[in-house]
Design a protein around this nucleic acid. Structure first.
Length: 776
DNA sequence: GAGTTTGAAACT
DNA sequence: CAGTTTCAAACTC
């Protein structure tokens, strides 16, 4: 039995520290203690080492870790239990809450995991002090296992005993499993705590204490963390805290994230549930509202995922957790250490597990992040946007897991979205994220306001909101609506119907628009993950590896002003653009066209050489060359190529219906042709780059490409096998493969009104995901 | 702050 | 599908 072992191990520390009966009792509760110990240990280690690596190392080496964790945890637990437990006894109220919160987190994490929504799990995890630690380690390792682990944890929650056993066994087997065990144990403890009234109080106290302690540790840990990690945290914080988290926390965002049924829907739903008022006074409303929100959320989750086995208990716990989160956020990041911890942990967890992407997407998810992206872009960075709202729908987690963080994030939504999100997050951290803020603000009025102001201070634009007069904020003209967020105070709109009160109208309108144009809410600009932030897209191409999906139609602005969506999005114009006298500093359309032409030529040549050989090589190339290709491509090649490539796989599996508008198709037709010719060989090179950048376009244009693909790639070689490996080549090309596989599954995911469009969206998401992977 | 310009979105 | 209108953001003064 794990519990026994742990319990036995724990007792010593506890005994050492204290003789108090309470402590002994706690010790008897083995499950809880172990978890704490584990987390604490991890946290401690992290704190000591200060390096994330250290943490990861812990996770990596199960044996060592286990011992260390147990020891450290025990010691820490003992301390906590001693000092805090005693206090907890006196403070029944807080302790209970804390315990609930912890439980909820665990449950939430588990639930999300099960649902396959990485973000949810991540989000949930962060809140829990222990989770944070574990996650960081995971993150460090970059193990995709998180997903699996969480699932186990969830199950464990349901079945504590089983979970324990499983956890123990797993821990022995794999570090990942070990993590899982930790997770599960925590969950078990948490869950168990709830079920067990007696333990609950104690646990609650402990948890609260743990949280506080862990928070402190975490904070320290964060400080120690590398810049990169910090950046991640910041991004996550910004994203979540600013927008999504706040909204969710107040409204039970976790659930919404999980469900991911329709990003937009979720976002709106959350807000609706939450209510602005509630958001303002999260704490006050917590009890009553939480129950409501949680229930609704649960309903949503069930509906969306249908697989979530959450128990009411769990739900109640989650509620508490959410609440807790809200409280923390409400309190403000800076205010209390605990808050910081929670926030950081959330951000970290999100980053680790699935990443910020999820977090942001959550907020943005529903609707494209257009606004965010756009708003961000002006500042200098590209804004990524979530994939289509429809695209957001839950997708299989396997792929995500494989790819890791990004994938996970992207999974639900397009990877690109995840990446994009990252950027935005950065931006947010920088100071202004319009979208997140908006979202948060909407959901959480008070906090968001403050943050907005803060952000605004940083970024003037962040504050901006729509000023619609005739559209009632129910058209894409409205930035808020387009971004999938409700209008809030900052808006100067008239007759606004884009409010939680009019949720139904908003959703119905959104569906209509999506039906008309499946990509309407998709991110206008797709950004390469690789190009990413790091190098800044250096190699590949234009400053912005991303490309405008639809392409602009600028005539007088020369694509040098915000009128140009491409420019606004910080991306170069592509073949999709129909702009005149393009002078886009991020990349001219001409360049793309040239590239495309070159691609075509290359493709033709390749065809001459031999399709079969090419195919084989392509496979290899795709896996290995993706990066090179991308890099080589100066601007991102026209999506045509990319689209063709992407399309091939996708379409092969299923033809996506094209959005009516998706694109005018000028470039497409050419692109499709080109791709068809080039298909494998050339496509691999160019396509990779193109795909990354222009995934969206591809999706739109997928039709032609598909055909091409089928025709061109006689063998399904490239498609299936590599894809299977999949995740494997996360890089761009890998993305292709993935796309192929994913393609079949995705369609179902989309689910929204636009099956066809959804298909495209999903594809986009996939395409994006590969990109994301590539960079990693 | 008001007015103009611009191009996307929506409509026919 | 193309052309026109509507709309709100972006921009200018």
């Amino acid at each position: 039995m794990d519990t026994p072992d742990r319990a036995a191990a724990q007792p010593p520390p506890a005994s050492r520290a204290e003789d108090s009966p309470v402590f002994s009792f706690i010790n008897n509760l083995s499950p809880i203690e172990p978890l704490k110990s584990a987390y604490n240990a991890s946290s401690i280690q992290g704190y000591q080492s200060i390096n994330i690596t250290s943490v990861s190392s812990i996770f990596t080496s199960p044996h060592d870790n286990a011992h260390k964790e147990t020891r450290l945890a025990k010691s820490s637990l003992g301390e906590i239990s001693e000092s805090e437990v005693c206090a907890g006894g006196s403070k029944t109220n807080k302790p209970a809450k804390s315990s609930n919160a912890v439980r909820l987190f665990a449950c939430a994490s588990t639930v999300t995991r099960e649902t396959h929504t990485v973000t949810c799990s991540d989000v949930a995890d962060p809140p829990t002090g222990p989770c944070d630690l574990a996650q960081p380690a995971q993150f460090d390792n970059g193990s995709p296992d998180h997903n699996t682990t969480p699932c186990h944890g969830v199950r464990s929650d349901l079945k504590q005993e089983k979970c324990r056993k499983l956890d123990v066994v797993q821990t022995v087997k794999n570090t990942v499993e070990k993590r899982k065990c930790l997770f599960s144990t925590e969950i078990q403890l948490l869950d168990g705590g709830q079920p067990v009234n007696d333990s609950d109080d104690v646990l609650g106290c402990e948890w609260s204490d743990l949280i506080s302690t862990t928070s402190g540790e975490l904070l320290a840990f964060d400080s120690t963390m590398d810049d990169h990690h910090r950046g991640m945290h910041l991004a996550a914080k910004n994203a979540e805290s600013c927008g999504y988290l706040l909204s969710k926390l107040t409204g039970g965002g976790e659930i919404s994230d999980r469900a991911h049924p329709s990003a937009s829907g979720q976002v709106y739903y959350q807000e609706i549930v939450m209510g602005e008022d509630q958001a303002e006074n999260p704490q006050i409303f917590q009890d009553g509202q939480q129950t409501i929100s949680t229930e609704e959320i649960q309903d949503n989750i069930y509906e969306a995922n249908g697989c979530i086995p959450l128990d009411y208990k769990v739900e109640s716990q989650q509620r508490g957790i959410r609440r807790r989160c809200l409280v923390f956020e409400a309190a403000g990041f800076s205010n209390t250490v605990v808050q910081k911890e929670t926030v950081e942990s959330l951000s970290v967890s999100t980053c680790k597990g699935k990443s910020h992407v999820q977090t942001q997407p959550r907020g943005l998810r529903g609707i494209g992040l257009h606004l965010n992206a756009l708003a961000l872009t002006p500042k200098g960075k590209m804004a990524s946007q979530d994939p289509m709202a429809s695209g957001l729908h839950p997708s299989s987690g396997s792929e995500k897991d494989v790819h890791g963080k990004f994938l996970s994030a992207g999974e639900n939504f397009p990877d690109s979205g995840g990446e994009l999100l990252e950027f935005p997050m950065d931006d947010c951290s920088a100071g202004g994220f319009p979208v997140n803020d908006h979202v948060s603000s909407q959901s959480v009025s008070p906090q968001k306001k403050r943050r907005k102001t803060d952000n605004n201070g940083d970024d003037g634009e962040a504050c901006k909101r729509c000023s619609c007069k005739k559209s009632k904020c129910l058209k894409l003209y409205c930035e808020c609506f387009a971004a999938g967020v409700y209008c809030s105070e900052p808006c100067s709109c008239q007759g606004c119907l884009n409010k939680p009160i009019h949720e139904e109208i908003v959703l119905s309108t959104r569906k209509q628009i999506e039906f008309r144009n499946p990509l309407a809410f998709a991110p206008k600009v797709i950004r390469m993950s690789d190009a990413g932030p790091e190098t800044g897209e250096d190699p590949n191409s234009t400053p912005a590896s991303a490309r405008h999906k639809r392409g602009c139609n600028c005539k007088k602005s020369s694509c040098l002003k915000k009128y140009c969506e491409c420019y606004q999005g910080g991306v170069g114009c592509s073949s999709n653009c129909r702009c005149e006298s393009c002078k886009n500093t991020f990349g001219r359309r001409d360049a793309d066209t040239e590239l495309t032409e070159e691609m075509k030529q290359e493709g033709e040549q390749a065809e001459n050489c031999g399709k079969e050989k090419e195919n084989d090589q392509q496979k290899a190339n795709l896996q290995n060359e993706d990066h090179p290709l991308l890099e080589l491509v100066p601007i991102t090649p026209p999506f045509d190529l990319s689209s063709s490539l992407l399309k091939l796989p996708n379409f092969s599996s299923a033809k996506p219906p094209r959005p009516s508008k998706a694109r005018s198709g000028n470039s497409r037709s050419s692109a499709s042709k080109v791709t068809a010719t080039l298909q494998s060989c050339k496509s691999s090179k160019v396509a990779g780059s193109a795909i990354d950048e222009e995934m969206p376009d591809i999706l739109k244009e997928a039709d032609s490409p598909n055909n091409c693909v089928k025709t061109t790639s006689p063998n399904g070689k490239r498609v299936s096998p590599p894809h299977n490996a999949l995740s494997i080549s996360p890089s761009r090309k890998g993305g292709r493969k993935l796309i192929l596989k994913s393609i079949p599954s995705f369609p179902s995911l989309m689910g929204e009104s636009n099956s066809g469009s959804t298909m495209n969206d999903t594809e986009n998401a996939f395409s994006t995901s590969p990109l994301v992977l590539g960079p990693s």
